[in-house]
């Protein structure tokens, strides 16, 4: 058993929430550089240059890349040899509260989806927990803005719809989203499982490194095929026309029922933020 103090979790979460909002990861910055070089549309290049400059300003001034500092989505992997001196969820919520307040991040959460009173501290976070072997605690914070989340979709296809059905649904989602999701996008696709599992897979796929390839070569091929098709839509940076509609497509799959083919498409904007620590 390894003892982890909840005060330490709170401190680390507070810091991580700010870092996730201030500093984009290198894989994303490299993808933006490459897109700016290759984009053939003139407004597209201008927009990509603004996005790159914005990332530099945010990092140098320690201010959020985007004013929509999002719902704090937190992924936890907790080793079964870890012992905590308090409540894990309370420690994380306290960290989000502290990070969003001390980092001057926007508080975008309303307590009730219908009466809509702002909670004032960006809690509650959305926390996904996995129990794994070992004595470590891994925390990933992925702030998720409203623009791209609002354009995300889920469907229950028929098994016979197959790959073509999945592809059509993904393209239709991108086309409906257009400029609203702040392209260039990172597209997360969850295939299989059931209704909620497919959405979880789609969200989780957004945490992958943009340069990686899926371990299954067939899925890796499908990712490349979808990316190519998405970039033929012409939507381009900020929807103003161009060939960089998405920077990457990530797919995660899971076993499913004989009668089902669930597909979830979680769109992430170019402010595709996530940071990880291991305690």
């Amino acid at each position: 058993m390894r003892e982890i103090r909840s005060a330490e979790i709170t401190e680390k979460v507070a810091k991580l929430a700010q870092e996730a909002n201030f500093y984009l990861n290198d894989d994303l910055l490299n993808a933006l550089d490459k897109a700016a070089e290759e984009e053939i549309s003139e407004p597209g290049r201008y927009i990509l240059e603004q996005i790159k400059e914005n990332a530099q300003i945010a990092a140098s001034e320690n201010v959020p890349v985007c004013q929509d500092t999002g719902v704090a989505v937190v992924f936890i992997k907790i080793g079964n040899d870890v012992h905590l001196d308090g409540d894990l969820y309370e420690a994380i919520e306290a960290g989000i509260r502290k990070g969003y307040s001390e980092g001057y991040l926007r508080k975008s959460i309303v307590a009730d989806p219908l009466s809509r009173q702002n909670t004032g501290d960006n809690t509650p976070a959305i926390i996904h927990t996995e129990i794994v072997p070992g004595d470590q605690l891994e925390i990933v914070i992925a702030p998720k803005g409203g623009g791209s989340e609002n354009m995300s979709r889920i469907t229950m296809l028929k098994p016979g719809d197959g790959k073509t059905g999945v592809k059509d649904f993904v393209i239709e989602t991108i086309e409906k989203a257009g400029a609203n999701a702040c392209p260039p996008l990172v597209v997360g696709v969850g295939i299989g499982g059931n209704f909620e599992k497919s959405a979880y897979l789609a969200k989780k796929s957004l945490l992958r490194d943009l340069d990686d390839h899926h371990a299954d070569p067939e899925i890796a091929k499908f990712e490349a095929e979808l990316l190519e098709a998405i970039n033929k839509t012409g939507i381009g940076p900020q929807g103003m026309g161009g060939r960089t509609t998405a920077l990457a497509v990530k797919i995660e799959v899971f076993a499913t029922h004989i009668a089902q083919l669930p597909v979830a498409v979680n769109l992430n904007c170019h402010a595709a933020r996530h940071k990880k620590i291991i305690i």
Binding site: I57, C66, A271
Partner: peptide, 13 residues
């Protein structure tokens, strides 16, 4: 007019 969505630190300047 559109401003570039997500270019929020740049626009703030």
């Amino acid at each position: 007019f559109a401003a570039v969505g997500g270019a929020a630190a740049l626009i703030a300047r």
